[in-house]
Nucleic acid binder design. Sequence first.
RNA 1: GGAGCUGUGGCCGAGAGGCUGAAGGCGGCGGUUUGCUAAACCGUUAUAGGAUCAAAAGUCCUAUCGAGGGUUCGAAUCCCUCCGGCUCCGCCA
Length: 428
Amino acid sequence: MHDIRFIRDNPLAFDEGLTRRGLQPMSRDILSLDQEWRTTTARLQEMQSVRNDASKRIGQAKAQKNEAEAQRLMAEVARLKDEVPATEQRVRESEEALNERLSAIPNLPAVDVPDGADETANKEIRRVGTPRTMNFAAKQHFDIGEVLKQMDFEAAGKMSGARFVVLRGQLARLERALGNFMLDVHTGTFGYLEVVPPLLVRDQAMYGTAQLPKFREEQFGTTNGYWLIPTAEVSLTNQVREQILDEAQLPMRFTAWTPCFRSEAGAAGKDTRGMIRMHQFSKVELVSITTPEQSEAEHERMVGCAEEILKRLGLPFRTMVLSTGDMGFAARKTYDIEVWLPGQNTYREISSCSNCGDFQARRMEARYRPVAGKGTQFVHTLNGSGLAVGRTMVAVLENFQQADGSVTIPEVLRPHMGGLDVIVPHGA
RNA sequence: GGAGCUGUGGCCGAGAGGCUGAAGGCGGCGGUUUGCUAAACCGUUAUAGGAUCAAAAGUCCUAUCGAGGGUUCGAAUCCCUCCGGCUCCGCCA
């Protein structure tokens, strides 16, 4: 949600930000809605002031048993009886119109975000690790899964349809091992607080992190009004909704390993095979709540936390800054981490870390009280995956596959796998 | 699912149609006292929006007692709906 006062004071900067996002300027439109709201509000407040004043005097007159004076004053404000509700109605309408308009506008990009229409304008900022040379043709993960006989898309299809998978045996355990490993690092090394949050949330929570109102079709909802979280970002971030925190509590860092549910209505035809794009997947999420001063450094730190997981697993990756055209709705700046997939011979997104500034905080009414100074300010929210677990599994399978179809387990995961060092085909 | 209770400022807690933006306490801030700390005492301490203004300060106005409606000249207080919490019963992992 944008700050209307920012738009009032900086209409040109606002429009420029929209233009960088590939949108049309809107400040004129918005400011006229704002003007409408302000004039009706002023009119209403004036009436209320008259009424309050009269009411107070009526009270005094009654207290002094001056019934005649009370009656006279009541007659005087009688005409407001119709006018006030009518004006209230108009204020409500213009306010709604303004909010509806504002809540559909994406966050403005930070100054250092590269301009561009889509992902081709993303900029690589670093590359870590070297893809291993294989003296055999690298398989894609679903082919490896087939050899291992522990990844079953057919069985999943029969009960749930496309974009689901059944993992069994060591692959099922590998998912658990990866989740545990990631949580251990994020809590142990990086100081995130582990959370088990709700997976079903109400409208207001989805609105707070900006999945609603714009991305309704991409979500799964229940028949009785809940939404399945598309990411733990929703639950973790909404922990601080409608709160006034102390500056001393910031930054707050939360992590959670949860299933995520996405209908991805618009993505039909993309990554239809395999585990890359699923309706249900699990992800270790990182969320930080910070002051505005802290948020940039926290963003760097957060990407670093996600990168550290890949480093420890020995997976090659590169880190990108998304261009203005490729960023998500709520983000003002986003880093994507792309992991090397030998089977696809390309880097694929495995984590996305966004600084949302105060965009979500305004929607959630999440504030903090500065140690020095008066009043309150909106917090900054940052979120990022401390890695998508399923995609990490894909990367492990593809990067550590052997010619005979077995998969070597990275050193750091072995304690989580009961000491196992290689996954071999089931029944072999 | 059934029955009852409950939601007040950063926190605890009084208030039950007008004198209540809201007693009292805690916490915070400023001060007195003090070798330092603590204690004691005094004072102070909500937020948001709008108008005015080049802007800031200031001044004025409005709103806010879980949320939204309603009754009334006037609502924290009465009525309705919703949301959260608690207790008991039922059911379940």
